[in-house]
Every structure is written in C-alpha cells, then in structure tokens.
Design a protein around this nucleic acid. Structure first.
Length: 707
DNA sequence: AAAAAAT
C-alpha cells in the first residue's frame, strides 16, 4: 500500500527544506571532502549541550542552507488520489508503473506474462522499453529473463562444453536493463586510511585496483558496465582472499560494498573453473526425469540472506555480475508462488540466492541439491546465525548434502558481528581469515547521528516537525532542471518503528497528515512489500515506515534521513538501520527518538556515537553512566549485555580504542532525566502543534507494544 | 515482548 499526498497541507519553508546531505561538496573536483561531523563547526558550537537543537533554522542541515528549487511536477500523476488506499488488500491502481498486466491471477502471474512478452519481444520493442523507464529498477517481474546472462538452456550441450571463462555475445537490451540503474559512484578514495585487520594463516596481500588480480574478461567487463572504478576497502581485501579459496569472516561498515566483495570473486572463480561435477549431476538429473521434465538443480554457489527483499536485491546484483556468462542466477524466497520459482529454477541455476525457509522447502521437494555447492555465502551472517535462524542454517549446511567445510568455501559478511556469534560462526569455517574493515559494529562517519529526547506522546508531532524540516511534500518535488544538475537528488526518508502494528498506524497517521508515504513489514503480503519498496525506491513515496524487515542490507539510493521513531533494543539493529543512509561514500542523517523506554540501549548507543565522532547529548552520557550502575546481569545467548561489554568490545582483537567512551563523566550530575535534554530551543521548542487532533490521547492509552 | 523466516 502506498500513500500519495492528497495535497500540500504543509507549507514549505525553503530554509528548512534545505536538507541536502548529498551536497555540493560531493563529486566536485578539487574540493576536499569534509565529513559531516567536521563541517560547520562554528554552528555546532552554538548548540546547547543538550544537543539536538535549536530549532528549525539551524538544525539538521549541517551547514547546507541553500534553498531548494520548488518546482511543481504535477505530482499527482499517480492516478486517482481517492483510490490510493484501495491497494491495501486489492490490486487497484499502479498500472503504468510496472503493474501493467491486467491479469488479476495473482502477482506471480505477472512475472510470467512480463517474461513472456519480454522474451517474445524483438529489439523492435526497445525504444518503448527504454523510454518508459522512470529511474531505476525495472523490477522483479522480468527476473528470470535473459538477465542471468543468456544461457537459458543448460541442456544446450554445445554451450556447456564451451569455456565458461569466455563471454557470451552481448545483448544491448539486457545490458541496458541491468546496468541503466543509478550510478553507484563510490567515493571511497577518501577512506584509504581506514584501519583494516586481516588475521589468519597466510593471508594474501590486498589489491589496490581491480586489475591487480585476474578476475577474467567477463568480470572486468561487468565491472566497467557497473561503473565501479576502484575497489572499496572491503573489496580490496576480500577479493584476493576469496580468489585464493580461503574461508572468510568479513566485517565492514554498512554501505561499503560487501555484496560485490563476494559476488565478483565467487563468480570469477566459477567462470574460471566451469561447472565441474555439477554439470554431470544435472545431466543425470535430467535423464532421470526426462529431458524437459523436472530437474533437480545443483547450484555451484549459494547465498543466504535474512529477508526476502534482501535476497531479491542480491539476486539483481548477481545478474549484473553474471552478465554474458554461462552462470544463471536464481532466487527463491517465501511469500511468492513456489511453482513460479520452481519453473525458474528448472531453466538452470548455478548461483542461488535464498532465504532459509523457502530453500529448505525446495530441498525437501527435491528441486535443489546442494551436493556440488562449492561456495557458501552467509550475508548478514550474524543475523543468520542468531537464535531465529541458526537451526535452519544448520539444517541447510550441516544436515544435508552440502560439502563439509574444508571442501566447500564459506564466506560470511556483516557490518556487525557480536563476539558470541563469531565463535558460533567458526563451526562453519575452516582455516578462515578474519577481516575487519574499520571497527566491527561501528557506523560510517558519513552518517550524522542525532539522538533527541522525545516522550512517547510527543513522537508524532515531533516527527511531523522533523519531516517538515527535511522532507519536501510530493507536489513540490522538482523533476526538471535541478535534477539534471544533480541526478537522482530525490530525498527519501526511512522511518523505523518497532512493531508491525506501529508501522500500520504511523503510516496511517502520516497519510492523514498529507504525506506521500508507504510502509513495509512482515505481515504485509509479499506483493505489497515489494510494491512498497518499489514506491519508495522510485521516489513515488518518499517516506517509508518500516519494521526491522528493512533494517539490513537494503541498498536504496537517495535515503537522506533515517528516523528511529522507536529505537531498537539492540545496538546491531541500530547500526544496520542507520546504515540505510550514508552509503557508498554519500552523506546521511540519522535521527533517533529516545526516552525512558530505551534504557537498554543507552550504553551501546553512547559508545557508537563516541566512536563515530558524533556529538553526544550530555543527558545521554549521564543516563549511560546511571544505567551502567543500575543494571548488572541480564542474560541472552546472542546479546551482549551490561557494562564493560559494549559495542566496541566485540572486535576480535582488543587493540586500539582504550577507554575514551565517556568523554566527560563529570556531566553525570546533571541528573539523568533532568532538564538538559531539551530539543527545541528552550524546552519544547517543537510544540505540540498536532497533539489535539484526537490521536495523541488514544496513543497514550496503549502500552509500549501497542496492545 | 517484537521481528524475521515455509505453508
């Protein structure tokens, strides 16, 4: 479901709307990159110790006050506004935005039709195909098309006998489909001094350029098409490690290019080595089942991810890296029609991206055999190995036919990796190399982090003020001249809440307030989830209200602001959430609403802020100190708790960062909950403009979980 | 107590 603003109910104050974190300093030759925490120091000094800030005229903006050009773009192009809400259950609206299939037989049917018409289309159809492309994602409905690289028929023996390291012929259409998305210009040149730790026997030297290691013709071509110029820090280290067939546990900050760090070398290896035994296994399978009948697929590589949308995203990325190769990537995940996914698998599957539950299902149905899976990747590995997922991972990796560790190559990636999970992870690794780019679990300094004290009852009105200061209502977003100057400058805001119910009600509220918004959480149908993400990505709905489902891994360009309407209860979740902004060298802003309920995260949050060189509100420092003395023992297998074992302490080594956590303990006597936490110049600056609309009282009667 | 992940 998506909400598009009915009208511009909130006037736009140009001065406040100037949040433009992806600012002019980016990409301007000859001008030095200045990280957000170092910019506009003069203004910062004026801030009260309470931090957040003085109000509307100089908050949020990090020194960039240039006004935005407020041009009309006829924003209502989205169809009948009155029907905007009809999509919640049904299938209203949205035609013309990729949902142009009139067949109402379920959303999976759309894939079929899209694919059929797609594949049936000759190049004559190209012009219309190109021209109706808004910004990026052509979307999932063509997946399984030619995108995997062109070998739609593994049964074509003449092709299988070919050298997998040689590229297949190019296709202008596929190329355009895969690579016409937003430019992922990576500004990691500035990060050469980032501390890197690579431990383990015989760790190969890192590379400085993609040309420093032989990844073959296909990969190099696709790197060029993807407009990757230099490897990011994690790629510099992970690529040679993976190329030398080593197991790997890799930790690198959000948005630092982890996906390509494993896809490039893994696919490079597959291209070099060819299908091997898997080919014969598939031929046998085909003979048993009839040439065009059911075939069990034996992927050479498996990538596991914790959410469906992340799996889809990795799959899309894999299609790029596999372009012009013999490797056909597939993706399977729950919530979508399994028959459709099976048919896609049967067209050939050499690299499989999956969520665990659906993969187990596929294995039990005999559609997937992991017997020849030589490459296993756990993305968001700490999540995949925590309590919710660990049994399923063991089921897939240890209790089936996958080659044991030592025979297969196992790689794990995450931005966070609590020590206990690292230990658990060793079960799946052999002679592995531990790689930490930056400190494990730390946040990018490209993200300006703000923590502001907001009582539960004030959250909604505060959010509105925040949005008014940082979001341009849909109707006045420009799409013309300025966009040409700064491509893709849409400003997206991602609002995290703790519960599914909370997501529904907050989206509803924002909709009633006139904002173009949508929401995503695990109780939505898969179709709605993907639709919401698409509406957000495309900028159609520049506000997305989300639960933890969107916290990890999703790479959405133009997310300028992440708002923790509710703070999460553990610091890893916080790190991943705010990591939806400030990606690949861009700047971002993260604002977190903090109150009495968030005591459990106080200490870790403080550590994170200090580590990322962010301003720390003095009240937070005080609370952390109090909390440290108050709570002592709490248990939990996958959590770190209590004082002294904070966020920074689960690096594998204990070097560096001695103390320094509490910059100024003297401040503790400000009294914790005392008056020092003001957020609007002089207590309640952001008044309760909206508190009398009948919803505040209602809200205060429900408990913390909305029950 | 919540979210996620198969049906």
């Amino acid at each position: 479901m998506s909400h598009v603003a009915v009208e511009n109910v909130h006037g736009l104050d140009p001065q406040l709307a100037a949040l433009d974190l992806n600012s002019d300093l980016q990409g301007v030759p000859g001008r030095r990159y200045i990280p957000p925490h170092l910019r506009n120091k003069e203004a910062s000094k004026n801030d009260s110790p309470g931090g957040w800030d003085n109000g509307r005229s100089n908050g949020f903006v990090n020194g960039f006050h240039e006004g935005r050009d407020n041009r009309m773009n006829g924003g209502g192009s989205f169809g009948g506004r009155g029907s905007m809400r009809s999509d919640r259950g049904g299938r209203g609206g949205f035609r013309g935005f990729g949902y142009d299939n009139k067949d109402a037989g379920g959303w999976n049917a759309q894939k079929d039709t899209a694919y059929n018409s797609f594949s049936g289309r000759s190049d004559r159809g190209k012009s219309s195909f190109f021209s109706d492309r808004g910004s990026s994602s052509r979307g999932r409905y063509e997946r399984g098309g030619f995108g995997g690289g062109g070998n739609n028929r593994w049964t074509d023996d003449s092709k299988n006998d070919e050298d997998w390291s040689k590229p297949l012929p190019p296709s202008e259409r596929v190329e355009h489909e895969l690579f016409s998305g937003g430019n992922t210009g990576i500004n990691f040149e500035k990060y050469d001094d980032i501390p890197v730790e690579a431990t383990g026997q015989n760790c190969p030297p890192h590379i400085e350029s993609f040309h420093d290691v032989d990844m073959g013709e296909i990969i190099m071509g696709n790197i060029t098409l993807s407009r990757y110029t230099r490897p990011t820090p994690v790629q510099k280290y992970a690529i040679p490690i993976i190329k030398t067939k080593r197991d790997l546990m890799a930790c690198a900050q959000t948005g630092s290019g982890k996906t390509a760090a494993f896809l490039l070398p893994v696919l490079s290896q597959i291209f070099t080595e060819g299908p091997g035994e898997a080919l014969q296994a598939m031929k046998n399978s085909a003979q048993e089942n009839g040439k065009y009948g059911r075939r069990k697929q034996y992927p050479i590589s498996l990538v596991l991810a914790p959410t469906r949308e992340l799996a889809l995203q990795i799959y899309e990325e894999a299609r790029k890296v596999a372009y012009r190769s013999h490797v056909r990537p597939c993706v399977v995940y729950g919530g979508a029609d399994i028959g459709q996914q099976i048919r896609d698998l049967e067209r050939g599957c050499h690299l499989l991206v999956a969520t665990p539950g659906r993969l187990v299902d596929m294995m039990e149905r005999g559609k997937i055999g992991l017997d020849y899976c030589n490459y296993l990747v756990l993305d968001e590995a700490d999540r995949m190995l925590d309590m919710g997922f660990e049994p399923q991972i063991r089921r897939i990796v240890e209790q089936d036919t996958m080659p044991p560790k030592g025979l297969r190559q196992t790689m794990m990636f995450s931005a966070t990796f609590p020590k206990e999970i690292q230990i658990l992870a060793r079960d799946f690794l052999e002679e592995y190399i531990f790689l930490a780019v930056g400190r494990v679990g730390s946040t990018s300094e490209n993200i300006t982090q703000k923590v502001v004290w907001v009582e539960e009852n004030d959250k909604r009105s505060f959010l509105l003020d925040l949005l008014n200061a940082t979001v341009i209502p849909n109707e006045v977003q420009d799409s013309t001249a300025e966009s040409v100057e700064k491509p893709g400058k849409e400003s997206l805001t991602l609002v995290f809440v703790e519960t599914k119910k909370g997501a529904d009600s907050l989206e509803d509220f924002l909709y009633r307030e006139g904002y173009s918004c949508t929401s995503i959480h695990g109780d939505r149908s898969q179709r709605d989830r993907e639709e919401a993400l698409h509406q957000f990505r495309s900028g159609r709905c520049p506000i997305l209200v989300a639960t933890a489902v969107a916290a990890r891994g999703l790479d959405i360009s133009n997310v300028k602001h992440v708002i923790n309407f509710d703070l999460p209860s553990d610091i890893e979740e916080y790190v991943h959430r705010i990591g939806r902004t400030g990606r690949v060298g861009n700047l971002g802003l993260a604002t977190s609403f903090f109150n009495d309920k968030n005591g459990n995260i106080t200490k870790d949050l403080l550590d994170i802020l200090v580590e990322a060189k962010q301003e720390v509100p003095s009240w937070l420092e005080s609370l952390a100190y109090e909390h440290q003395h108050k709570s002592s023992s709490r248990g939990g297998r996958s959590k770190r708790f209590s004082g002294g074992f904070g966020a920074r302490d689960y690096r594998q080594t204990s070097s560096g960062s001695s103390g320094g956590g509490f910059g100024n303990r003297g401040a503790r006597n400000t009294g914790g909950h005392g008056g020092n936490r003001g957020f609007g110049g002089g207590g309640g600056g952001f008044g309760n403009f909206y508190s009398s609309d009948g919803y505040g009282g209602n809200y205060s009667q429900v408990d913390w979980w909305g029950n």
